[in-house]
Amino acid sequence: MATKAVCVLKGDGPVQGIINFEQKESNGPVKVWGSIKGLTEGLHGFHVHEFGDNTAGCTSAGPHFNPLSRKHGGPKDEERHVGDLGNVTADKDGVADVSIEDSVISLSGDHCIIGRTLVVHEKADDLGKGGNEESTKTGNAGSRLACGVIGIAQ
């Protein structure tokens, strides 16, 4: 089992970053940390998408990683996509320092995120509470600013 993974985020604009993942036990939580720069100040949706395909930019990554066919939600919700990591918060300089621990994603097994795409979005994720159909699919997080395929790390 891989215990570490990394993702280099890039987009068409100024947004870029490096996100690290570490899972010490196969059924334990995954620590997610790193930094994203070039964002507007505020909240930005942060999700693992189904495919590791960036051939047409971030759009070819498909929908959120959702092997259990659930509705979109927040990272602490029972009803959520596996890939729903909530929001990252950018400061006035456009930098989001990421520090998350998640017990639904994994670096092995059915919820493995390796080979899938991590995406940072234009807007805040409403965590499935926006009151419309799009909220239950995407959290109304808007366009995909930057993305990268999650790969095994040393």
Rank of each mutant, 00 (worst) to 15 (best):
F21R: 01
K10I: 09
P75A: 09
V119C: 12
K37G: 13
P29L: 05
V15C: 08
V98E: 02
D91H: 11
L68C: 03
L107P: 02
V88Q: 02
G86L: 01
E25L: 04
S99T: 09
G11N: 09
T40H: 13
V48E: 00
K37P: 03
G151L: 13
I19H: 00
S60C: 09
K137V: 05
G74D: 03
G115T: 01
H81G: 05
S60Y: 11
E133P: 13
Q16L: 11
K123S: 11
L127N: 10
I150P: 02
V82M: 08
G38Q: 03
S35P: 03
E101A: 07
D110L: 13
Q16M: 15
D84I: 03
L118G: 02
F46P: 01
A96M: 00
H64R: 09
K31L: 14
N54V: 10
D126W: 05
V8Y: 13
F65K: 06
D126L: 07
N132Q: 13
D93H: 08
C7Q: 01
P63L: 10
G13K: 11
K123P: 01
K37F: 13
E101D: 06
W33G: 08
V149W: 03
L85K: 00
N27S: 13
I100F: 12
V32P: 02
P63H: 14
I18S: 09
V98P: 03
E101N: 15
S143W: 07
G142W: 04
P63F: 05
W33A: 11
G94Q: 04
V88F: 06
G17F: 01
R70F: 10
D97H: 07
T117C: 12
T59V: 03
S103R: 12
S135H: 04
K129C: 12
R116W: 07
E79H: 14
K92L: 10
E122M: 08
K137N: 09
V30D: 02
V8K: 10
D93Q: 14
E25M: 11
K10N: 12
L68P: 04
R116M: 13
G148Q: 00
D53Y: 12
N87R: 04
H72F: 08
I18V: 08
A2Y: 03
S99R: 09
G131V: 12
